[in-house]
């Protein structure tokens, strides 16, 4: 059972890291737009639709 004295503090450290990561994400606008990203995935023929694109997104497609 002694292992819990190591594992539980470890889990707390992980939690603190998770919170820190989340705060960072919030600060970097990741949670400001929750509506449009859902539509991006539906956009299959992106290459056709943006011939003159400079948007970095299109380079993936």
């Amino acid at each position: 059972m002694n292992i819990i004295y190591v594992l539980i503090p470890l889990s707390i450290i992980l939690m603190v890291l998770a919170i820190a990561f989340f705060f960072w994400a919030v600060r970097n606008d990741q949670f400001d737009d929750l509506d449009t990203p859902a539509l991006d995935i539906l956009d299959e023929d992106e290459a056709d639709s943006k011939p003159d694109s400079t948007d970095p997104d299109s380079k993936q497609g």
Binding site: D33, D35, T36, K50, T54
Partner: peptide
């Protein structure tokens, strides 16, 4: 009105030369 508006604006205007970022807040 809705996310589709934001999508349309992002595709249509975001593809202009020199537009580095365009984010539409539907709310």
């Amino acid at each position: 009105h809705c996310a589709a508006c934001a999508w349309l604006i992002q595709r249509f205007v975001g593809s202009l030369d020199g537009v580095a970022e365009l984010r539409v807040d539907v709310a």
